[in-house]
Design a protein around this nucleic acid. Sequence first.
DNA 1: GCTAATTTAGAATAAAAATTCCAAAATCAC
DNA 2: GTGATTTTGGAATTTTTATTCTAAATTAGC
Lengths: 285, 285
Amino acid sequence: MIEAKPGASATKATERSAPATTEVFFERLGATADQLPKRLKQFADFIAANPDRVAVSTVAELAEGANVQPSAVMRFCQEMGFSGFSQMQKLFRSDYSQKWPDYATRLAKLREQGAESPSALLAEFVEAGRSSLENLMTTVDPKALQEAVDVLSRAETIHMVGFRRAFPVTSYLAYAFEKMDVPAVLHSGIANINMEHVIRPNDAVIAVTFAPYTELTLDMTTKARAMGADIVAITDVVTSPLARIKAIQLLVSEFDVGDFRALSASLSLAIALAVSVGTRRNPNL
Amino acid sequence: MIEAKPGASATKATERSAPATTEVFFERLGATADQLPKRLKQFADFIAANPDRVAVSTVAELAEGANVQPSAVMRFCQEMGFSGFSQMQKLFRSDYSQKWPDYATRLAKLREQGAESPSALLAEFVEAGRSSLENLMTTVDPKALQEAVDVLSRAETIHMVGFRRAFPVTSYLAYAFEKMDVPAVLHSGIANINMEHVIRPNDAVIAVTFAPYTELTLDMTTKARAMGADIVAITDVVTSPLARIKAIQLLVSEFDVGDFRALSASLSLAIALAVSVGTRRNPNL
DNA sequence: GCTAATTTAGAATAAAAATTCCAAAATCAC
DNA sequence: GTGATTTTGGAATTTTTATTCTAAATTAGC
């Protein structure tokens, strides 16, 4: 507006630096939106209404959505303090996937500092566990879970298979089923190798295994499948070998701390599954 | 549900059409993952573990993340039935915005639907687990934890005692100690009732028990104490019977859902303890 | 209503990304 | 082992996308 001196022109204050988070971005947007020129305001409104699109769209797509020219988008980005659209998009993208902290490197850092107290380690596991649990709600498909409950409720006997790091999960399932009077067998892998003799076509198997997959678990499960038993798999990724045999898959992604994980998510899924089945089979529980 | 034979000549079956949703994409991925060549399988595993990255990454970034060449990514996309990466990414991007309702809002929605659905129950356990973990940091005394690590690091052999709902905890400890080459014995309570014969004065016992306390656990632990062994107790309240015998107490208060609990806190404490002891005894781990 | 300053649209250019191609390795069948 | 076939790595190419530039249009001041 009023030009006092060359360079002053602080009315525009264009020399701002880029927002560090989407939160301060939207804050700044709200504060300055109505002093923006027409097209820029128009675009501002658009992304305020569709913030989720920024991370996955091109300049052209956003421009089209807001009914402005691509160059208007560029001007907008610069007005907000970014060098260009790419920088702004980077912010939106990182903001989205920021919830994948790397506990392994955090632990390594912790060790370097020498501050390797057991409490610090515990804190890491607690954090990893909380994130894993939060994640669990998105990785487990509700339909698959419902289907698993159906299948297990119909089964004559439920067999649990899972060794090494998966064994705590199966043993807890065994405890829960026993407490609720659901006929269930925990396969220890020691004495009863010939499990094809105990599994019947009307039975179901809960197989728990994580990469690297235990051979014995896959073996036993495959044989049970061949017998005609239904399989419910608690595993980590879809590419798990259990996918091949058409198991009902319940996916758990657990964060590691060093070489170990807290198993929080896996145990929670297991107990929820068990209790669902228990109350279904025996409603007065 | 055994695959019909004809047309099984799917050695290559590259003539498939592109998956219409990410669900069928992952289904197909699970079914074909293990007949893929090495690098393609490697990439398949990567995106199975990081599905959320696909929408917001470039070919080069994903390739780097999976440690393969960009061209391998292209071959993978085509193998899965897409014309190329761009088409595949388009699919993931359209799914992207549906994931935006974050954990908190999804949970709230699930709750107000009330419902007896397994998912709702799972949500309950997840919430209980998260709270329990949060609590854990305040209920566990850092000094006691440090002392427990000291004692266990000195022990000749570590014995784990815990049954019923505590058994998942002890069995996970057993797994962890074995993996870290720490001499440890898991007492199953079945075969070795005469454990006073295996426990030596220089040994230590980790006793895990929650109210109502299992008689056998208290018995065995008391006898071990009489032998002169050190005792580390993972239990729920200070008034636990283990207090009497001068055990080092690590307290965990776990929230119940109905008659069950998710064991998240107990497992986290156990694994932190085990890893601390393991790295102390064998620093190069 | 005329002039000066801003803003805009659209084309031109630069940068980045996807995709293809092919020689070298690796694997497989015999 | 030998030859045929598949798979791989990396560079070359094409396509897409971001960014800049400029003339035309709009707006504001007088």
